[in-house]
Amino acid sequence: MSKSSDPRSPILAAGAKAPNFRLKTTPDQTVALEDFLGRPVVLAFYPADWSPVCSDQMGLYAQVMPEFKKFDAEILGISVDGIWTHLAFAKDRKLNFPLLSDFEPKGAVSRLYGVYETSTGESARALFVIDKHGVIRWSLLSPDGVNPGADGILTALEHLR
């Protein structure tokens, strides 16, 4: 019980090795970070599926996908939502990249990256750009309720070159 009052460990910063993980993306498929070694990876942690705005962060990334592809980058959305809500959300918003379920043990990967909000039991809105060697090259913790957009990601991907 006393654990919930622990402050969040700091967000992993540029230069750190990106901790590997394996999470479910469909009921019978998992995705591991190391599957993408050799390519840049964008991790987009977000609080919850079904954000009430009409053009949410994940929807924007789906729309910007052709730009991410120019860098051969893979984008992975991560929240503590279960697989079934991820599937429904991805279908509804026509998302074209995997959503990973940091569901059991809850928030374990978010904690590993220093982006788990114990007060809400959700991931913070945080972005990581990881290079082809698995090293974090850029990270951003977005203030509550602020959609961090795609610009910082694209700039970080440009700097990988």
């Binding site: 924007l60 730009e67 959609n147």
Partner: peptide, 13 residues
């Protein structure tokens, strides 16, 4: 237009 928005911090409409 769209890309200029993305690069200018347009995240929604």
């Amino acid at each position: 237009d769209f890309l200029s928005g993305v690069r200018s911090g347009v995240n929604g409409t």
